[in-house]
């Protein structure tokens, strides 16, 4: 799923400095699961903003709505009637949300409340880790399910760099070296010699570096 972090309050407050009637839109999809954009977080953000404004003695009316997802036009359609009554709209969905809204309602101003970060999963209650970089050509089967593209800082394809020490990446002690894990796993499985074959340079064209991407289901799109 898509994992995001909420923006600091100061940044959000700056976005709405001169606006007194706003709408906060939550999304019941990934951001609810990673606890940044669900109904609860919408309420918390609304209360925090009201506190900030009340401190400066300036009133702020905040409406709240959470739709099923902000990445499908029909759901975006649901707020059509009232969307323009606000001075601004804060979307707590991932990066897709504010863009879909802006496309649907050009005259309204949309602000993102979260920083969308990566595709990943929950390793424990309240902790999410990156697992996939969306490079477009999945190769994890060569590395026993441990993806060097997403989980190696340099996305190396042929063995660890010189900086890997005691199983951790040179950039920080919290980041485990994925190659260390790959080699250890291969040794356990007794398939170490798989790594002998040289992996050619990766064709990044299918990744973000190849420009914005699109995927079409021929059987559906008419």
């Amino acid at each position: 799923m898509i994992v995001a972090d909420r923006k600091p309050l100061s940044e959000i407050l700056d976005m709405i400095t001169d606006r007194d009637k706003i709408l906060i839109m939550g999304c019941k999809g990934c951001v609810t699961v990673c606890n940044v954009g669900g109904v609860k977080e919408v309420q918390i953000l609304s209360s925090s903003l009201k506190i900030a404004r009340k401190k400066e003695g300036r009133s702020l009316t905040v409406d709240q709505i959470t739709i099923e997802r902000q990445c499908d036009p029909e759901y975006i359609e649901q707020v059509k009637a009232t969307i323009n009554d606000y001075d601004a709209v804060i979307s707590m969905a991932c990066g897709v949300g504010p863009q879909f809204l802006s496309e649907a309602y050009p005259q309204q101003k949309f602000f993102p409340a979260v920083n969308t970060k990566f595709f990943g999963g929950a390793t424990s209650h309240g902790i999410w880790e990156e697992r996939c970089a969306g490079c477009g050509t999945c190769v994890i089967h060569y590395f026993d399910g441990l993806c060097p593209v997403a989980r190696c800082s340099k996305s190396l394809m042929n063995g660890p760099c010189g900086g890997s020490s005691k199983g951790y990446c040179e950039i920080s002690k919290e980041v485990p070296c994925i190659w260390d894990m790959i080699v250890k796993k291969k040794m356990e499985q007794g398939r170490l010699d798989d790594l002998l074959c040289f992996t050619p340079a990766k064709n990044w064209r299918t990744s973000r570096d190849g420009g914005p991407r699109k995927s079409v289901r021929e059987e559906l799109a008419i």
Partner: peptide, 11 residues
């Protein structure tokens, strides 16, 4: 007790 209850009280 939820975060919203504490913020709501301050608010």
């Amino acid at each position: 007790v939820d975060i919203i209850h504490l913020l709501r009280a301050i608010e």
